[in-house]
Design a protein around this nucleic acid. Structure first.
Lengths: 249, 249
DNA sequence: TCAATTTTAATCAAATATTAACAGATTATT
DNA sequence: AATAATCTGTTAATATTTGATTAAAATTGA
């Protein structure tokens, strides 16, 4: 059976039922679990389905492009990120005035914030919603909404952001590299991040180990500007000029 | 059974009945109480339900992120509002620059907006989310988030709002009265509404018949300033100085 | 208030799932 | 036809999830 035929078969099965286990797919498609796993990995990378522990789920494009891209992806985030988020949340004090960057890692952080009198400012629409559902004092940065990430970016929002002076900022990143620093694929998001860091007394970047040694088009900060909170350092250590907080069980 | 399938099952059960105990969920989903507890912890952190002692309750997300008896009722009396929302959506043109007020009625309106090049500005967090999930061009007003209604209000947000000049505004209201005009219980929300109306060329107030002859503490506009879109006029008609668009099947 | 009852969170072993490495089969390339 | 590259299924080593157990915490009712 051709690989492409398998892909098609898998996607068709997932279209009927919303989810299927690896063993179910193997039986239905008529191949080994190994092949199914390899297929799911490919299709997940292509964004055609969502790989989850035990199988895969369909990407429902019914209404919310956002609902799936942002919310569902979070569900499959790993235990390491949970640890990072938990630790980051423990750094929050009652008198803090905190910036929360958009992105999945920081979104998870909000789930771990307990009862606090701190005030939170964010440019993430979902982050704002989570803040209020947690009963926290929240501020939303205004401006143009970027659909894919459900975050507010652009000149307008930067102007709004500049009014604030944060005690702490919790940032996400796509890449961390010794020479390129913290990088992200989107220049508008990068600009927001850059300014938020500028206006914060202490900056924490939440990043699991997979982010190290990766470089994306736009740099938004030098390494030394932020404290990295991670689960595991890359092989051979990292720049000794960087402040790294390694969180382990 | 896949973890994600369990999540979905739990959320579906909570959508039908507003609340369920851990043991009920375990029986209905067909898994152990341990797993249900773990699932509830995750889903609570994700903000998809509210974990309570003994089980979990659904989060009603139509307007406020918080459960609200009033909201529940409003959702149920929906057929008329649907009509109003549908008609209001038909008024939108490609070159419009539109303000969408926070509130359930306007939230519903977004669901009826088709493919348009118009730009939308809102102070509702959930409204913003709906806009992007619909693929519409959206702007968020920045400022302090009021938890109950998940809307942005306050001095900061009014300053941000004043920069705009809208072609049309779609507003919600709590009361419509000949002498008191359009009224709402919250003064901060009222101020936002007042300014939004001031900055709009045409203003439409979406209100079902139950809103007529009711007066709430704060007036945010005179009747003649806005065109009312409603499903049914009150007995004996209404002020003839008011522009009313009555929508019927 | 305090004791009885219920619920929760933490722990642990068993069951399940994943990964990576390997060798044979299949397909492309020269 | 020979060689390289890719794909497939198997296996063993890891890692994750699950349900039972139990001590601690929360709720209830007198």
């Amino acid at each position: 059976m051709l690989t492409q035929e398998r892909y098609k078969a898998i996607l068709e099965i997932l279209e009927e039922r919303d989810a299927a286990t690896v063993s179910e797919l193997a039986a239905l498609v008529g191949t080994s679990e190994s092949s199914i796993r390899r297929d799911l990995a490919v299709l997940d990378r292509e964004g055609r389905l969502r790989k989850v522990y035990g199988g895969a789920t369909a990407i429902i494009r019914t209404e919310g492009a956002l609902e799936d891209e942002v919310n569902v992806r979070e569900i499959q985030m790993s235990a390491e990120k949970e640890l990072i988020a938990e630790y980051a949340a423990s750094l929050i004090n009652n008198d803090d005035f905190i910036y929360i960057d958009s992105g999945t890692t920081t979104s998870r952080l909000i789930g771990h914030i307990g009862n606090t009198k701190a005030t939170f400012v964010t440019n993430g629409v979902i982050h704002a919603q989570k803040l209020i559902s947690k009963g926290l004092k929240g501020y939303m940065i205004g401006g143009r909404i970027k659909p894919v990430t459900a975050s507010v970016v652009g000149a307008e929002s930067i102007r709004n952001l500049m009014k604030f002076n944060f005690t702490k900022a919790f940032m996400g990143t796509n890449g961390i590299d010794v020479t390129a620093g913290f990088t992200t694929p989107d220049s508008e998001e990068a600009m927001m991040k850059e300014r938020a860091i500028e206006k914060s007394f202490a900056v924490f970047v939440l990043a699991d180990h997979s982010k190290f040694r990766k470089v994306y088009p736009v740099t938004f900060a030098e390494l030394k500007k932020c404290c990295i909170i991670t689960d595991k350092l890359p092989y051979g250590g990292f720049s000794d000029k960087t402040v790294i907080r390694e969180v382990t069980k």
